[in-house]
Design a protein around this nucleic acid. Structure first.
Length: 518
RNA sequence: GGCGCCAUCGUCUAGAGGCCCAGGACGCCGCCCUUUCAAGGCGGAGAUCGCGGGUUCGAAUCCCGCUGGCGCUACCA
């Protein structure tokens, strides 16, 4: 009898084997781990989704299995073609290359749900035939009314099961056909019993089936809902581990019932902790930047993002923060995924990005900086930006920059012919009340610098220090005056190295211009 | 409202009965280095392990209750 109490799984041995596998324990039957990232192309990929993709990727790589991309485009109303591209580009940007997927191919394609409708219809038909699902002809207007009434009565909103039995369905169908409406297919949820979810991260949770309603598995447009589509595909694609956000836990009991009705052995299921915004609620657009692209544009490095995201809900041990891709793959286990949600801490990401910038291969960093400068420097600067200068300045500014977006402000003066001098900034605190002295000092600096034999930072520094003594000012005060004169800024890379790169001509010209600006 | 998940410094986390009157990291505050800013070094503040009961010689770690936060509650995923 279909509606009798159900204890799932009947004999739990098999699930435990899979959980053991998920936890990295030894298991008797060798199996290939196959994970999938299955976003719906409705918008820009979100940081939380990418973190799920990352864990999917890590788990598959860890076990030498496959990481699959599948597009869940069953919601034709929210479908966005650009989103498809965004999904693939965001994965590529972080180096999470799927082994199978749309545009990649693979033995279990197609990897787009809209191209697999036969499978879902067949599954739905089978369920109807078995008596585990039925056609529902109720209008959405009626459904809304039912829901509204239930809410008014402070009852949990559930489908009232009008079409569950023959009589109601026939009546409902007559109305629908008169209005030219088609049916949906609903799952015939047992009226009571319980199901237990064995979650690789959360452990066991038992749900009361009586609280569930008869949910839709096939929509009136013929497309399946997530509940049907994902498991049909996971089964067909031999997915072994399902990783998804914690927000899916409430629908897990439905899925357990469905697996059973379809005769599918459930995969390992792991619900990942949510990523929260600063206010503690689920991360969303209103928290600001949530797409990987926004972070990339700001100048966060893919490797830093990878590292940071990998540590959102997982840790290697009690002290390791900087972890390479290879180490992540070698050590990742679901067992070490935490249960509690994590606030996305951009300050820490920023710090980490600085670490990656400082540790990066210099030639690579040069290219990054150069590309950034090509994009960010004012149009007056000829393109492509002088690679020779970039190469010489990289060692100076990589120590100072945490975001690629900051590169231009640290190095624009290297590329400009002249710089703008603001009188107050030039004088600063040290010279504020003696502009004339500052002018005189600049003149003497210019004269001395003209005499420096070799235009290198060491002799330049020696000369300037000596001059500070002669003039009777603190070296630091003189340097900061010259710094602003030469660079137009108060905060810059080391002065003498910068001057060396700038060349004598431009330095002298700028010092002269600065003196005039006083 | 119902159901569920979660609960260690502001934040990310370590911790699977004694090694913890709780460790690391970001951030914050000092000091050092120093031509600015960074980086780096050193040090500091910061958690009565949400609260209350148990169990135990002993609990952040086990059990129960409570509270709080969050999530779900669609022909969206």
């Amino acid at each position: 009898m279909a509606d009798a109490a159900i204890i799932w799984p009947p004999g739990a041995t098999h699930e435990y084997r899979w959980i053991a596998a998920a936890r990295g324990a030894r298991y008797a039957t060798p199996m290939t781990v196959r994970t999938r990232y299955a976003p719906s192309p409705t918008g820009v990929p979100h940081i939380g989704n990418i973190r799920t993709a990352l864990f999917d990727y890590l788990l598959a790589r860890k076990h030498g299995g496959q990481f699959i991309l599948r597009l869940e485009d069953t919601d034709r109303a929210r479908y966005s073609p650009e989103a498809v591209d965004g999904i693939q580009r965001s994965l590529a940007a972080l180096g999470l290359e799927p082994d199978e997927g749309p545009g990649i191919g693979g033995p279990y394609g197609p990897y787009v749900q809209s191209e697999r409708q036969d499978l879902y219809r067949a599954a739905a038909a089978r369920l109807v035939e078995q008596g585990d699902a039925y056609e529902c002809w109720c209008s959405s207007a009626r459904l809304d009314a039912v829901r509204a009434e239930q809410q008014r009565l402070k009852q949990p909103p559930k489908y009232d099961r009008r079409c569950r039995d023959e009589a109601g369905r026939a009546e409902s169908r007559r109305e629908a056909e008169a209005e030219g409406r088609g049916p949906v297919v609903r799952f015939r949820t047992p009226l009571d019993g319980q199901v237990t979810l064995h979650d690789a991260i959360h452990g066991d949770t038992t749900f009361d089936v009586a609280l569930l309603d008869d949910f839709v598995i096939l929509k009136s447009d013929g497309f399946p809902t997530y509940h049907l589509a994902y498991m049909v595909d996971d089964e067909a694609m031999r997915i072994t581990h399902v990783l998804r956000g914690d927000e899916w836990i409430p629908s897990a009991p439905r899925h357990l019932l469905m697996y059973r009705a379809l005769g599918i052995e459930p995969p390992v299921i792991a619900h990942l902790p949510l990523i929260l915004g600063p206010d503690g609620s689920k991360l969303s657009k209103r928290h600001g930047a949530t797409s990987v692209f926004e972070y990339l544009e700001q100048g966060f490095l893919p490797d830093a993002l990878f590292n940071f995201l990998g540590l959102l809900g997982w840790s290697l041990d009690d002290k390791t923060e900087i972890i390479s891709r290879e180490e992540f793959i070698a050590h990742f286990t679901l067992e070490r995924v935490v249960k509690s949600p994590a606030v996305f801490n951009i300050d820490k990401l920023t710090w980490m990005n600085g670490v990656y910038i400082r540790d990066m291969d210099e030639a690579l960093l040069c290219e990054l900086f150069a590309a950034r400068l090509d994009a960010d420097l004012p149009p007056r600067v000829p393109r492509p930006v002088d690679r020779g200068i970039v190469r010489r300045t990289v060692p100076l500014i990589r120590e100072r920059v945490k975001l690629l977006a900051e590169v231009a402000e640290y190095s624009d003066f290297f590329f400009a012919e002249a710089v703008h001098h603001n009188r107050d900034e030039l004088l600063g605190k040290a010279w504020a009340h003696r502009a004339a002295d500052a002018g005189a000092a600049l003149a003497r600096v210019r004269a001395s610098l003209a005499e420096v034999a070799a235009w290198e930072h060491a002799p330049i520094e020696t000369t300037m220090r000596a001059l500070a003594d002669e003039v009777g000012v603190k070296a630091g005060d003189l340097f900061s005056l010259v710094r602003v004169a030469v660079t137009g800024r108060r905060v810059t890379p080391p002065l003498f190295e910068s001057m060396e790169i700038l060349g004598r001509e431009r330095c002298l010209a700028r010092i002269e211009a600065a003196a005039r600006a006083l």
